[in-house]
């Protein structure tokens, strides 16, 4: 996967709680056998009207959200189905960083495995970012090494927590299977010991 060290980009604000993976990528698009090409289906039922036209009232279609690569979202983002198609779609659409007060566990893991950084910030800080980014272009810089997120002009600055293991993975863009296979002997020893 692609390494992520410092990311600077425009934001899109999604002021909705409990956004589930059925919304991020509806089930009719889960039938592909590839990992690529899911961006066009991201938030499909919200992004497009029944006639196929873009719905201008949906946050990602605001002119200010064009080319956004940082998504600011509310509580329990990515809940529901474990479908990894959700981070695949977010990434393919152009998102590298998500900022939210909380995530579903499976979605969080799936993001990290695909080089997307899910930043957890306290609710009041996320809501401040939402105010700053609402209906206008708003750029943030996310520095993973120093675990900091900041803007240029509004004076927003915050630090965030991340598991050191996930941080290392993201910073280096490592293939986790290659790492695990270095412990082949441990796995074999375990299998012998417990007779599986």
């Amino acid at each position: 996967m692609e390494a992520l060290t410092v990311h600077e980009g425009n934001t899109a604000v999604l002021e909705r709680a409990n956004v589930d993976t059925d919304q991020i990528i509806p089930k009719q698009f889960l039938k592909r056998v590839e990992r690529t090409g899911f961006g066009q289906f991201l938030f499909f039922d919200w992004r497009f009207k029944s006639d196929g036209e873009e719905d201008p009232s949906f946050e990602l279609n605001y002119p200010s959200a064009v080319n956004a690569s940082i998504l600011i979202a509310d509580h329990n983002f990515g809940s529901g189905s474990s479908r990894e198609h959700a981070p695949w779609a977010l990434q393919d659409y152009g998102f590298r960083v998500i900022v939210a007060p909380s995530y579903s566990d499976i979605f969080y893991n799936n993001c990290v495995k695909n080089g997307i950084l899910p930043v957890r910030l306290p609710e009041n800080q996320v809501y401040e970012l939402m105010q700053n980014g609402k209906n206008r272009e708003y750029h943030l810089t996310v520095d993973l090494q120093n675990q900091q997120i900041s803007d240029k002009n509004e004076g927003f600055q915050a630090t965030f927590e991340i598991d050191p293991y996930w941080k290392e993975m993201l910073l280096n863009g490592w293939d986790e299977i290659s790492i695990t296979l270095q412990y082949e002997e441990d796995i074999e020893a375990y299998e012998k010991r417990v007779k599986v």
């Binding site: 990992r35 474990s82 479908r83 990894e84 981070p87 499976i106 893991n109 799936n110 495995k113 695909n114 986790e176 299977i177 695990t180 296979l181 796995i187």
Partner: peptide, 11 residues
């Protein structure tokens, strides 16, 4: 997720 499915299949 699917990345983990691959990880379990392999390891």
């Amino acid at each position: 997720g699917t990345s983990e499915v691959e990880h379990v299949l392999a390891t």
